[in-house]
Design a binder for these strands. Structure first.
Lengths: 205, 205
DNA sequence: CACTATTGTGAGCAATTATTCAACTCTTTG
DNA sequence: CAAAGAGTTGAATAATTGCTCACAATAGTG
């Protein structure tokens, strides 16, 4: 039952353009502030200040702090970013290219603002509702990949389900790290090695 | 220059046994509280309460909240946990076993209290000093592995340095996830697939 | 223009939290 | 055993923060 969490619903729906504008200013500011300070230190007053609106206005459109980050997360998911790893090739001899597409996709999706994504993934106070949405999304992705691994003729792994989980998580996390850590390998090298690792794993002995 | 951070030094050094005992009670309680509530919600009062000492005593031995988590982290590192991946085999045909040892080590080191480790890794406010210590430790580990990869006859990868980084991070992160997430694969399956992935990667085509 | 609905304001309340300190009890020592 | 030192206490303080509300400003409407 999708009984929308009251704690995350806005208290006022925008009717005029300037209201919608204010709402967007808040979200933009929040994205910057959360990315810069993290969730706990990203205070509502700081967000309002950065959005150049008063704290009161902020609470017109978001009932509480959690709802702001929740909204950012939902928009991120809805935007399709974080998924989009479909349209994958099944022809023999194309495994490496398929894997490369997967890795590229991850890199692209994270280049936007990795710090914000980190906050969303690791610090967000997830309501049951939100947790479900994310979980559902993840399950769709792994299901897609599991399907691909099952069908692809070049794939030879012990446990397909575990492999799908392992690969998605590994690609995601390593991409995170690549974005956050400047002192590591250049993107091309990183991509090549990661693709190698996954491809060789899938091909089996 | 190791100009020890004043903000992390205790204000009183224990001289009697009961004092040392109190200090330990604080750390034990803090470990539990941080693991259960996270860093922000793991308040000093809660720690004192759990340790069954007064809040004043807590501040006798730790100048501030940060210092408590910092101390826990240092002890964790000093304990050798988090490293210990040495003593690895160089004989041909032993690559899989070597990798398995690496993975087992990671699993063992994280089975203690994964939630606390998560807090330490992801929420700890790292002083410059602490950040250095961790960085140094990481560099030692990657150097060890890089050395191994270079010497081992069965290893065939493009960029050994990147490979070492990639492997350590991947093993670490996947182990984290395994501990945190109950709804995933059983340990044996997970271990087998992870070992497969790394081994096949290193063996090359 | 006048009236209403919508939007914006920001001082301040209430709750939480890290931290202090003066007074106390317990241990050691001469 | 008495004085000094070590250790403990917890109410009080100061700072921060999420959030409210009474009011002001702006936009839509006849």
């Amino acid at each position: 039952m999708p009984s929308a969490d009251r704690r995350l619903q806005p208290r006022r729906e925008p009717r005029q353009v300037r209201a919608e504008l204010t709402r967007e200013r808040i979200l933009t500011a929040a994205a910057h502030v959360f990315a810069e300070y993290g969730y706990a230190a990203g205070t509502t007053n700081r967000i309002a200040e950065r959005a150049r609106i008063s704290i009161g206005s902020l609470y017109q459109y978001f009932p509480n702090k959690d709802a702001i980050l929740a909204r950012l997360l939902v928009e991120h998911i809805d935007r399709g970013t974080w998924t989009e790893a479909a349209d994958l090739d099944l022809a023999p001899g194309t495994l490496r290219e398929t894997v490369r597409a997967l890795v590229r996709d991850a890199i692209d999706n994270h280049s936007e603002d990795p710090r914000l994504l980190r906050v969303m993934v690791e610090e967000a106070p997830l309501s049951a509702e939100l947790r479900d949405a994310i979980g559902r999304h993840g399950r769709i992705r792994t299901a897609q990949l599991r399907d691909l691994l099952t069908r692809h003729p070049d794939v030879r792994v012990g446990d397909v389900a575990t492999a799908a989980d392992l690969i998605l998580f590994t690609v995601e996390m390593n991409t995170h790290k690549l974005m956050a850590d400047p002192g590591s390998a250049p993107v091309e090298t990183f991509e090549r090695e990661l693709v190698d690792m996954v491809t060789r794993y899938l091909r089996g002995d």
